[in-house]
């Protein structure tokens, strides 16, 4: 099957797939950031139980395979009388996985600042909130630009899990398997989807590098 024939027959599917991948990535990433901040706050707060829960959260979702989590959410939760629609299942999986890595990025961002700076700030008489607002958070955010760009790409790749449940519309990976069960798409059918992923990743890392260059702290 040639490219024109492939796109003529399934062009709309690919386009919808690309849009589905993009929209799931965008929605997931917003929640990934929110949840990552929340988990990081829990992990550095002075209350022991919350720290433990935060650490446990990160260890669990950093180490669980995406498919295992998706299956738990999509097929095990209904047995516990919690039924989510397919799209929500995929997005929830992506958010849980991504936020664990996001929190790790924030933590290592905080850790690169160095204890000395906080001690210096305190000896100058800055209050706790001022230390966080003026010293810790700005630097942590600036050093996490590049890791977070990589996380955004990882979140996009994770949405490929959507091919494991009956999504409508399907995302890019689901479209390829749909095309291939219907016709012999061959290598080309995969290349079209791959270009969608690689192209998006390229643009994301381009923008990420730009931002990073502008805000990076040279040490």
């Amino acid at each position: 099957m040639g490219l024109s024939e492939l796109l003529g027959t399934y062009g709309q599917n690919y386009l919808n797939g690309l849009l589905a991948t993009w929209s799931m990535t965008a929605v997931s990433f917003v929640f990934v950031m929110v949840l990552a901040v929340a988990v990081t706050v829990m992990r550095v707060c002075p209350f022991g139980p919350l720290r433990v829960v935060g650490d446990l959260y990160v260890q669990i979702f950093r180490n669980i395979p995406g498919v295992a989590l998706l299956i738990l959410i999509a097929y095990a939760l209904p047995d516990l009388k919690i039924v989510l629609d397919w799209r929500t299942c995929v997005i929830a999986t992506t958010i849980l996985l991504g936020s664990a890595f996001g929190s790790e990025n924030f933590m290592s961002g905080i850790n690169t600042i160095g204890v000395g700076q906080v001690e210096a700030a305190r000896s100058l008489g800055l209050s706790f909130t001022k230390i966080l607002r003026r010293i810790v958070i700005p630097q942590a955010l600036r050093t996490t630009v590049l890791p977070m760009t990589n996380l955004l790409i990882a979140v996009m790749l994770t949405t490929a899990l959507g091919s494991q449940v009956p999504l409508n519309p399907q995302e890019l990976t689901g479209v390829v398997s749909y095309v291939n069960t219907r016709a012999t798409g061959g290598i080309l059918a995969f290349l079209v989807s791959a270009v969608g992923y690689v192209g998006t990743a390229f643009v994301i890392s381009l923008v990420g590098n730009r931002i990073d260059k502008r805000v990076r702290i040279l040490r």
Binding site: I153, L157, T158, A160, L161, S163, Q164, L172, T173, V176, S177, N180, G185, G186, I187, F190, S193, A194, Y197, V198, A201, F202
Partner: peptide, 18 residues
């Protein structure tokens, strides 16, 4: 960059079908 930018599931489907 190609292998880093493509989900592993897509590659698995590739080896499953092609």
């Amino acid at each position: 960059d190609f292998f880093r930018g493509v989900p592993s599931l897509l590659l698995i489907y590739f080896f499953f079908f092609v």
